[in-house]
């Protein structure tokens, strides 16, 4: 190869899109291009090896609920309770953010001197109270939405009913599980986050259906 390859040729080779042999051969002999390619590869490796975040099953359930199941609800009937639910959800979400316990550093090998997250948070009744309150808010928000759903349910086909029943059951079970994980605030926050996603998406679905009915 006469002269240096273009940046895009080097990049394509480095990212594995299209590694032309003459580009790779050139970089093997040219310090400047080798350096550029090393950078491009190093960047890509660092960026791509970062852990893949988990995909919560609630996300799909929520999408399915919103996409396939508009519930026809009259504006007048839904207006107040859904707003109330929205307020409760917002309050609970804010609370969950505020009370999310900071993770204390646990040094391995310190034995009895080490303080685990669990013990640290257990020692704080305020955290527990705040989490109880958040769970209560979610439960009441879900209750409001369930009332809305109950009146519309009979008008839905059985497949849609099943999907919505499952979404409500899932949201309820997450809140229940968070109540049972009393001694593990990290876990409780995680479960409450999950139920927040469900409750908000159910609310969204009801609001979407309102748009459709308009």
């Amino acid at each position: 190869m006469i002269g240096h390859p273009t940046f895009e040729e080097l990049e394509a080779a480095a990212l594995g899109d299209n590694a032309r042999p003459e580009v790779v051969a050139h970089a093997g002999q040219c310090a400047e291009c080798a350096r550029e390619m090393a950078w491009l590869r190093a960047e890509a490796q660092l960026v791509r090896r970062r852990p893949q975040p988990a995909l919560r099953p609630e996300i799909w359930l929520a999408i399915e609920g919103r996409v396939h199941a508009p519930i026809p609800i009259s504006r007048a009937r839904r207006f107040r309770p859904v707003l109330a639910a929205a307020a409760a959800v917002a309050a609970a979400a804010a609370l969950a953010v505020v009370v999310r316990p900071p993770r204390p550093v646990t040094v391995r090998g310190q034995g009895d001197a080490a303080v685990s997250d669990e013990e640290a948070a257990q020692a704080d009744p305020k955290t527990r109270q705040a989490l109880d309150r958040a769970a209560g808010d979610y439960r009441s928000a879900l209750g409001v939405l369930e009332q809305e759903y109950a009146t519309a349910r009979t008008r839905l086909d059985s497949r849609t009913q099943k999907r919505w029943d499952e979404s409500f059951a899932r949201a309820r079970s997450l809140i229940d599980a968070s109540a049972q994980a009393r001694n593990d605030p990290e876990e409780r926050v995680k479960l409450l986050d999950g139920s927040a996603v469900m409750v908000r998406s159910l609310r969204q679905a009801i609001e979407d259906s309102e748009e459709v009915a308009r």
């Binding site: 790779v24 970089a27 090393a38 893949q52």
Partner: peptide, 21 residues
């Protein structure tokens, strides 16, 4: 210069795993 080329050669040989997602 050749030394620098060498120095980076080992990095160039490392395949960048394409993100399979």
């Amino acid at each position: 210069m050749a030394e620098t080329g060498q120095r980076f050669a080992s990095l160039i040989d490392v395949p960048v795993t394409p993100a399979d997602r």
